[in-house]
Simulated scan of single mutants.
Amino acid sequence: MLRTEDGVRIEAVYEPATAGVTDTGVTGTAVRDPAVTDTAVVLAHGFTGSAGRPSVRRAARVLAGHGAAAVVTFSFRGHGGSGGRSTVGDREVLDLSAAVRWAREQGHARVVTVGFSMGGSVVLRQAALDRGTPGSPDAVAAVSAPARWFYRGTPAMRRVHWVITRPEGRLMGRLGLGTRIDHRAWDPVPLPPVEAVPLIAPTPLLIVHGDRDPYFPLDHPRALAAAAGKGAAELWLEPGMGHAENAAGPELLARLGNWLTRR
């Protein structure tokens, strides 16, 4: 259990890298690859997810099994075994910061973040807001992240807003989805992802989005990449991919691991 700056208890899981020691092929001597084993990937799930969800565990296994790094997964506030209530991307920045700081305390020279959907918006904002602090990541990847708040342009997002804003929706979220949602509106409205990305450089930034995402169309990742500035972000538009960790296959996760550990 980790504790955030505002006192919320956050459940987390630490998985050491399962690779990172390679054979030279000449003498048979095992050689430690510091680019891999000195890195920890902190994985931030999407709304209604948790550290124990099968899609999150699968992503963590691929990243660790691929030898990308040690992997830290955690449940955002209001999700899984964590305390508090979900603020749907606002104070979740503090949850991610606690996980990044904890990974550094374990001795990892590099700590990188990857977030999915809501978690994608959080890794972008956290990288901008925590620059120059021990919570600052060394590389950031956002998958299926929104560019702006209050988007209702797809049926899927209209359903999400119903869950968040309606008492009966929050009840369904708690009983059916295991997500405890704060009833209070944002005050003030947090920095939008599209305004956060220009503040991330020179930290390496990757934006990943599927061209069949039912929640956020392609103008969201394109807006994020454009806002970062010329050459400040890589943009991967994935053919046939849907939304977030549920749609991220092993091949994409392996590429993410390579990108995160080699920046």
Rank of each mutant, 00 (worst) to 15 (best):
L2P: 03
R3V: 14
D6M: 06
D6L: 12
G7N: 08
R9F: 14
E11D: 15
A12D: 06
T18L: 15
T22G: 07
T22D: 12
D23Y: 00
T24V: 15
V26H: 10
T27L: 15
A30S: 09
V31D: 08
V31Q: 14
D33S: 13
V36T: 14
V42L: 05
L43M: 11
H45G: 04
G46S: 10
G46A: 14
T48A: 13
T48L: 07
G49E: 08
V56E: 10
V56Q: 06
R57C: 12
H66P: 02
A68T: 15
A68D: 05
A70H: 04
A70P: 00
V71G: 06
S75A: 08
T87E: 15
V88W: 11
V88I: 13
G89S: 05
D95H: 02
L96F: 03
A99G: 02
A99N: 01
W102T: 03
W102M: 08
R104S: 07
H108L: 04
H108V: 11
H108C: 11
R110I: 07
V112W: 01
V112L: 00
G115I: 06
S121F: 09
S121R: 01
V123E: 09
R125H: 04
A127V: 08
A128H: 10
R131H: 14
G132R: 10
T133H: 12
P134C: 10
A142L: 02
V143M: 11
P146L: 11
P146M: 09
A147N: 02
A147I: 01
R148E: 15
R148M: 12
Y151V: 11
P155M: 09
P155T: 06
V160Y: 08
V160S: 01
I164S: 02
T165W: 09
L171H: 14
G173T: 12
G176M: 07
R180V: 14
A185R: 12
D187F: 13
V189E: 15
P190G: 04
L191P: 05
V194E: 03
E195L: 09
V197A: 02
I200Q: 01
I200A: 04
A201Y: 06
L205W: 12
H209Q: 09
G210I: 06
D211S: 05
R212P: 00
P214I: 07
P214M: 09
P217N: 09
P217M: 13
L218P: 06
H220T: 00
L224Q: 00
L224D: 00
A225S: 04
A225Q: 10
G231R: 01
E234R: 12
L235S: 07
A244D: 06
A244V: 01
A244Q: 04
N246H: 07
A248H: 03
G249F: 10
P250E: 12
E251D: 15
L252R: 10
R255I: 13
L256V: 14
L256E: 08
W259V: 10
T261W: 01
R263S: 13
